[in-house]
Design a protein around this nucleic acid. Structure first.
Ligand SMILES: [Mn+2]
Ligand SMILES: [Mn+2]
Ligand SMILES: [Mn+2]
Ligand SMILES: [Mn+2]
Lengths: 224, 224
DNA sequence: ATATTTTTTTAGATTTGTCTAAAATTGATT
DNA sequence: AATCAATTTTAGACAAATCTAAAAAAATAT
């Protein structure tokens, strides 16, 4: 069995692994778990004994196949619950993450299976993040960051790469929500900031930092 | 804040208090929490410091108003989640208790409120137990035990007073499920065992012990 | 190649919830 | 009232997850 705490460590190591393909450092884990490096060292040794990670001291850590499976299950539950909260209970997408952090540790294969079916086997969560299927396979995400899109090419807002409440509420304020059509009017050479046109709304100005965190898909792609 | 563990103690003390109106003994709590008396003593002192119970050593324990409020919130969540699992996810009523034991500790007032609304503000859980409203008020349960019903008086099966998987599966086997109409054919004077007729099924023979644990309402009562 | 800084690990302590074994209290029985 | 039995509490220990401070190792700069 994996405890609540162990699951959180595994999930965080999984997410860090997606960004860098080398070993994950103790400090990087400490930052995301909001603990101190000394605590991480203890936990890594423990996870290693349980064969959930490969860890040798001073060498960083990575998940074993077994550890990855656990992490994907937790991520799957997290994202399914977020869909439930938004689609069924009427939550806003900036309100669901904290609750899903608790719900993701409820253990029952049947519960996850039935919830998935009840939600209509969603492929993406309310933030546009892909939901692993029951075998841990991620759906192909054809989304790009807005920062990679060309001027005047119309795209649909599909998700965000960063989930802080601050960021989500900023998006709400400037009128950016899932499903809205947008295109880039102008890119500022100097700092890569951009002016965009939001369908049914006025133009607005966003930083490169924001554009990097917006997931969009081309309007021409098929819709199902 | 109350921890997962503290909440379980409070819930158990609440349930024991409903049966006896004197102080609850350390041993009684130990039995239901599946811990040892020594552990209970420690926890009672802690709950007492937090003003959640009235406790003096060797004198037993009872809930304060504050403790009762916490207990009722946990019970409310437990029962709402059971309704969700049965009504929305298609679980059988004998499969939901363990999962609800975990879900009942998720903390979010908005979650509970929205869930309640999503389920249509149910008054009773799948086992016929009353669901406290958001102010902690229990709906009037007009149900009686089958053991108090007269011969030939038709009643509807509304719930059970005991939730063990064993018992629920026994009921399933003899064809007793929620909503079915039954009446008592004969009561055996010697041991109070009884023969009952289940609508659309054959007669069957049940012990007094079983009858005491079946909640029913008179067929004449109004239906909404 | 050494010295300095940063990162990581170890050592030892703390908190929460549990346990066993022994002591204390209560309640029941002579 | 004294004894015995049952219940409850205390004392001391342990596992999980965390911390701080010090030591060790690795990375970086001189
Ligand atoms: Mn989330
Ligand atoms: Mn998400
Ligand atoms: Mn239950
Ligand atoms: Mn129930």
């Amino acid at each position: 069995m994996t405890s609540f705490t162990e699951e959180n460590y595994l999930k965080i190591i999984y997410k860090l692994s997606a960004e860098t393909d080398s070993e994950i450092s103790t400090n990087a884990v400490a930052e995301l778990t909001q603990t101190k490096a000394a605590s991480v060292t203890d936990m890594l040794r423990k996870l290693s004994e349980k064969q959930l990670v490969i860890y040798q001291k001073y060498q960083g850590v990575r998940l074993t196949k077994k550890g990855e499976t656990v992490a994907l299950k937790v991520i799957r539950k997290h994202r399914l619950w977020e869909v439930f909260l938004v689609d069924k209970l009427g939550f806003n997408w900036d309100e669901v993450h904290e609750i899903a952090e608790e719900l993701e540790h409820i253990n029952s294969d049947k519960l996850v299976q039935q919830l998935d079916e009840f939600l209509g086997f969603p492929q993406f969560d309310p933030h546009g993040d892909p939901i692993p299927d029951k075998h841990g396979r991620m759906p192909e995400s054809a989304y790009k960051n807005l920062s990679e899109i060309l001027i005047n090419q119309e795209v649909v807002m599909m998700g965000v790469a960063q989930h802080s409440t601050n960021f989500l509420q900023y998006l709400a304020k400037i009128g950016l929500h899932l499903g809205v059509n947008i295109y880039i009017v102008e890119i500022n050479d100097f700092d890569k900031s951009l002016t965009i046109k939001i369908e049914g709304s006025t133009q607005c100005f966003i930083s490169y930092e924001v554009a990097k965190n917006l997931l969009v898909k081309s309007i021409s792609m098929d819709e199902d």
